[in-house]
Amino acid sequence: MPDRRHALTPDALAMMDTIARTGSFAAAARELGKVPSALTYSVRQLEDALDVLLFDRRSRQAKLTAAGEELLQEGRRLLAQMDAVANRVRRVATGWETQLTITADDVLSRRTLLELCEAFYAIRPQGGSEGTGTRLRLRAEVLAGTWDTLLSGQADLAIGVPFDMVLPSGFEMRSLGRVDFVFVMAPHHPLAGRDEPLTDAELLRHRAVAVADSAQRVSPITVNLLPGQDVLTVPTMQMKIDALLRCLGCGFVPEPMVRDHLALGHLVQREVRRARRETTLAYAWRSAAVGQPRQAPRGLALQWWLQQLESPATRQALLSLPSGLPCAESAAHGH
């Protein structure tokens, strides 16, 4: 009996597809440039190797058995996968990564990120009809969590890391821009009617809403929370804003994310005695392998994203998220 592994070749699977598509051995033989007897012999060799009948011999047409139908469907899937792998290998050989993972901080504009993805997928290398072949994977983390994914190798590019993070050897960082945070609460919150600026003693008597830092391996960052203060911790910045709208607490949020709510009176801003918080964010990527001081060559996909981030307009768009836009579902700030 022939070895089934050697029998299940791309040519054998393509032959099955041709017979099923044309409806007869004679028509398939003409398309493949073979005589019908050669095709019949090849099918019998395949049936012997698999120890099944692939075609119903009682029919004059090339009618597949249940086993033949299964082989046809799986064979078509395998042929498509082989073509995809071959195409991807050729693309990788030209410098395009197989996958690029991008971590973005929770306060960044998801609309802008998706617009960048849309532009990336529109790339046609060397004027061809196909894209780069690079799979994009987006993650949403925050503060130390965003940095954590880059350090641990879970991300190739981290957008929105704190600019004041200590940069280890083998990484590069560029400034993304500044995010202004404002202290807000619902208009019927007790602090909304108090004289400004609000003191820490006044803030301590009221619940804060905070978004948890998503770091798993490095120390998480906690900001603007007072010792002993009651805290409602939520998983995303958007949920924090929703909690503030429901008067479940008060807290600092990025001004662009609540600009519309402030204009409509859904939230009110109050000055606090502590310094107004401004955060400078950055984007970072690994430039060399650990233990190798020489700069590693960048893949073409990473190069493209870094080129987009060089644009002041792109950086500004990432930092200007209107309050009406949804945020991503994962993780974030301890504001």
Rank of each mutant, 00 (worst) to 15 (best):
Arg4Ser: 13
Leu13Arg: 04
Met16His: 01
Thr18His: 04
Ala26Val: 15
Ala28Ile: 03
Lys34Cys: 08
Ala38Lys: 10
Val43Ala: 02
Arg44Glu: 12
Asp51Tyr: 13
Ala62Glu: 02
Ala67Pro: 10
Ala67Gly: 06
Leu72Asn: 02
Ala93Cys: 08
Gly95Gln: 05
Leu100Trp: 06
Ile102Phe: 05
Thr112Gln: 15
Gln126Arg: 11
Gly127Val: 04
Thr132Asn: 00
Arg137Thr: 06
Glu141Cys: 12
Glu141Tyr: 10
Leu143Pro: 04
Thr146Ala: 03
Gly153Pro: 05
Leu167Gln: 00
Pro168Gly: 07
Phe171Lys: 07
Phe171Ile: 05
Phe181Trp: 05
Met185Tyr: 01
Leu191Met: 13
Gly193Ser: 15
Arg194Met: 14
Asp195His: 02
Pro197Leu: 09
Thr199Tyr: 05
His206Trp: 13
Ala208Lys: 01
Ser214Gln: 09
Val218Lys: 04
Ile221Ala: 06
Asn224Arg: 14
Pro227Ser: 08
Asp230Met: 13
Val231Leu: 12
Val234Lys: 03
Ile241Phe: 00
Cys247Thr: 04
Cys250Pro: 03
Met257Pro: 01
Gly265Ala: 05
His266Gln: 15
Leu267Ser: 02
Leu267His: 00
Val268Thr: 15
Arg270Gln: 09
Ala284Asp: 08
Ala296Glu: 11
Ala301Arg: 00
Gln308His: 14
Arg315Asn: 12
Ala317Cys: 12
Leu321Arg: 14
His333Cys: 12
